[in-house]
């Protein structure tokens, strides 16, 4: 593991744990490093993506294949894009079991594990996105930040068609409960716009959110 990558992981976990700008203590740090070791062992990250031609219909809906999405915030995010990548990723059921187990014997450990799993998942999604970006770059397309159902006014119910179009259950074992929760819980679904024009410094992740007073905010 490269020092830099580990560094970023630890920082992200500390942020998720609510330390804000404060330094974490040694015991929390040691729990974080133990958690990542356990995650390396128990996680089986998998992802799936499919690229669709994208257009905006006359009545303001985003169309990709048979999928129609109505969302102002997503349209803003996809300004100028002509392709849409549907994306799904999961860390697998092993991580859920690990967290359930920890919350029975060591609640502090469970909380740290939970935070590290979130950071681990984001890191994995970033890596996948980078690879997808490289492939699309060869076709002269540049990726926008990924955008998930539940962000802004992009309704969580779009998760269902999105997962169906990716055949997530079969391909990566990602399913959804009746209340649209993803199972395994450490999972992501998202759409990623691709445009012929490269955006300068696209704002992504945490910084893209409008809640400036959030205690978990990165900057």
């Amino acid at each position: 593991m490269l020092g830099e990558k580990m560094d970023r992981r630890v920082k992200e976990a500390i942020r998720y744990l609510g330390f804000g700008k404060n330094a974490a203590d040694d015991r929390t740090l040691s729990m974080i490093s133990r958690s990542y070791k356990e995650l390396e062992r128990e996680a089986s990250p998998k992802h799936i993506c499919r690229v669709f031609e994208m257009s905006v219909t006359g009545n303001g809906e985003i169309q990709a294949g048979k999928l129609l999405i109505r969302s102002r915030s997503l349209i803003r995010n996809l300004q100028g894009c002509d392709k849409l990548v549907l994306f799904g990723a999961t860390l697998g059921t092993g991580v859920d079991k690990l967290i359930t187990r920890a919350s029975l014997t060591d609640m502090a450990g469970a909380v740290v594990l939970q935070a590290c799993a979130c950071a681990y998942l984001e890191e994995y999604c970033d890596e996948c996105q980078e690879r997808i970006g490289e492939e699309l770059k060869m076709q002269g397309r540049y990726l926008r930040p990924r955008f998930s159902p539940g962000y802004g006014d992009f309704d969580i119910h779009y998760q269902e068609p999105l997962m169906r179009m990716l055949d997530c259950a079969k391909t990566i074992g990602l399913t959804m409960t009746e209340s649209f929760m993803m199972t395994p819980t450490k999972s992501v679904t998202a759409v990623i716009g691709a445009s012929p024009v490269e955006e300068r410094c696209p704002v992504s992740g945490c910084e893209a959110c409008s809640r400036k007073d959030c205690p978990y905010r990165r900057n």
């Binding site: 015991r27 060591d106 609640m107 502090a108 740290v112």
Partner: peptide, 14 residues
């Protein structure tokens, strides 16, 4: 007050 954080609170609880 924001001087003790969640993992620490829980370690104390345990």
């Amino acid at each position: 007050k924001g001087t003790v954080f969640l993992p620490q609170l829980l370690m104390s609880a345990e």
